[in-house]
């Protein structure tokens, strides 16, 4: 997967979750997004689902899929790479 896609995913996380004062460089590509790491929760997950669909046309159908997809930035980029139309 390309570094460009990883950067785009990081920017999408910052924009859709309105994380103030954070740049893409500050998000670790392999760090967990939920619980530890960025400390996201299920409200954030749905916001990311909508953002991914809007920006990449990729659907995350349910929380079970989401828990794998949203494990890290790398897993998000991997899922987008596989499912992008």
């Amino acid at each position: 997967m390309s570094e460009e896609l990883i950067e785009k995913v990081k920017q999408m996380i910052i924009d859709s979750l309105r994380i103030e004062g954070m740049s893409p460089d500050e998000i670790e590509t392999d760090a967990p997004l939920f619980g530890e790491g960025l400390g996201l929760d299920s409200i954030d997950a749905l916001q990311l689902v909508v953002a991914m669909e809007k920006e990449f046309g990729v659907v995350v159908p349910d929380a079970a899929t989401g828990s794998t997809v949203f494990a890290s930035v790398r897993s998000m980029a991997g899922y987008i790479g596989e499912h992008r139309k």
Partner: peptide, 10 residues
């Protein structure tokens, strides 16, 4: 709710 397509339930 899950069967109807809810993204998550708890």
């Amino acid at each position: 709710a899950t069967a109807s397509g809810a993204f998550s339930v708890s």
